[in-house]
Design a protein around this nucleic acid. Structure first.
Lengths: 224, 224
DNA sequence: CTCCCGACTAAACGAACGTTTAGCATGCTG
DNA sequence: CAGCATGCTAAACGTTCGTTTAGTCGGGAG
């Protein structure tokens, strides 16, 4: 059964093709990445790519599955060591390899079902942390629905992941590395500490939000 | 000079083509959107698209420019009415039309130069707000560099924009509408208020971040 | 040894792509 | 009126795409 011909760097040819695709798809998009380019980068013929994955879309699905699986594995490890809860769930993603992180960010930006699943899983985790944290006294009382609060927190955290290129430029450190996380996280903590924004501006903002026109139909703007 | 042939809905044919492209590019990606599809949706021939914009890439540039211009216009208006400062800069983007917002989110997800410019502009704005706010007492004392703090805040805020599809699902309200902003913003404010996270978990998280392995070369993970 | 299955390639397929060319219709200008 | 620039289309260009087909090679099973 283990009858693979060429094995370079202890990776199956199939896995090598998939890893190349995981690197390329976020870079040039799905349609912008050609089967021929993937094959060339993996050192195989274009036909072999389709032999292993059925079609280009099949390769896409395989990439999604693999990244999701790696993400879950990362989560499990982070939960065992305790860093998952402490780092607010998503920050622990730095343990993933950079290509997988870029792929994750790319997928989340698309409206795919995989993206919805990943986002939903994170929200589930943070919701649990919120509810359990309140029982443990780690989370103070709050208004509203825990799941909606969790969704906002997840979106905030993932913002750093999706915009890692820009944060990398702002910080001068690769934001997908541990150094980047160590550089940026204190600022996130400072924002959440309540020490940054004064009560006055918070009240002003709250009022401004409440006074928004509920429906944008009267003063709707055209794309013109 | 104003010699345009067909004018439907008071928009130039050229503007109509560009608006169609602004809708399509985020949906299917740049490579995934064909000139023929844009032309068909705009009710013109494919050749006319290239006649007006030179090439597909030229159309892309025109879309970028137009969205950037609309964003700046939105900013200027929000500054005049005061909502820009109060809403933390980016939240005011809801005033943009939905296609433009989707395009903005799509562009920010790419590593394009336009994205870097937009992100940088937002960071500039928030940096100024941070510095001026401290003088006015609206921002309390904080540690670190104001520009880096601003970058983290912008990334957090834009996270909601980039992940609007998922937030929309979580809230049951279109997150690119005023209703969506009104629904989600209180949760963001609650997170920033310092009332959500207890001091203990904040300290735990801070410690966990500091104890990360500085360089990930020893335990580096492969994409395998 | 023979047979066979799976990894793998070379070559070709039709379709669809971005772009070009030639030309038509319209309206402004002199 | 003639002349010309402009908005616009139809048709075709060459290229490149995803995919298919036919076939080679090599190890494992009988």
């Amino acid at each position: 059964m283990l009858n693979m011909r060429s094995v370079a760097g202890d990776l199956t040819t199939q896995a090598r093709i998939r890893d190349v695709a995981i690197e390329r798809f976020p870079k040039d998009g799905f349609a912008g990445t050609t089967v021929r380019a993937i094959a060339a980068a993996a050192g195989v013929s274009p036909a072999l790519v389709l032999h292993h994955f059925g079609s280009k879309e099949g390769l896409h699905r395989a990439c999604d599955e693999h990244v999701v699986q790696m993400t879950m594995e990362m989560k499990r490890e982070a939960m065992e060591t305790g860093t998952y809860r402490e780092s607010g769930a998503i920050a622990a993603t730095y343990k993933l390899a950079e290509p997988a992180l870029r792929y994750l960010a790319w997928t989340l930006g698309t409206g795919s079902e995989t993206a919805a699943r990943i986002f939903g899983d994170f929200v589930d985790d943070v919701t649990v942390q919120l509810v359990e944290g309140q029982e443990n006294g780690l989370i103070n009382e709050y208004h509203g629905d825990p799941r909606q609060q969790a969704a906002v927190l997840v979106a905030m955290q993932l913002g750093g992941l999706l915009l890692h290129d820009h944060l990398t430029q702002a910080f001068g450190v690769d934001m997908l590395s541990a150094e980047g996380l160590m550089a940026a996280a204190p600022y996130a903590l400072q924002a959440f500490s309540g020490n940054l924004f004064d009560k006055e501006i918070m009240a002003q903002t709250k009022q401004a939000i409440e006074q928004l026109q509920p429906t944008g139909d009267t003063e709707q703007r055209a794309t013109r």
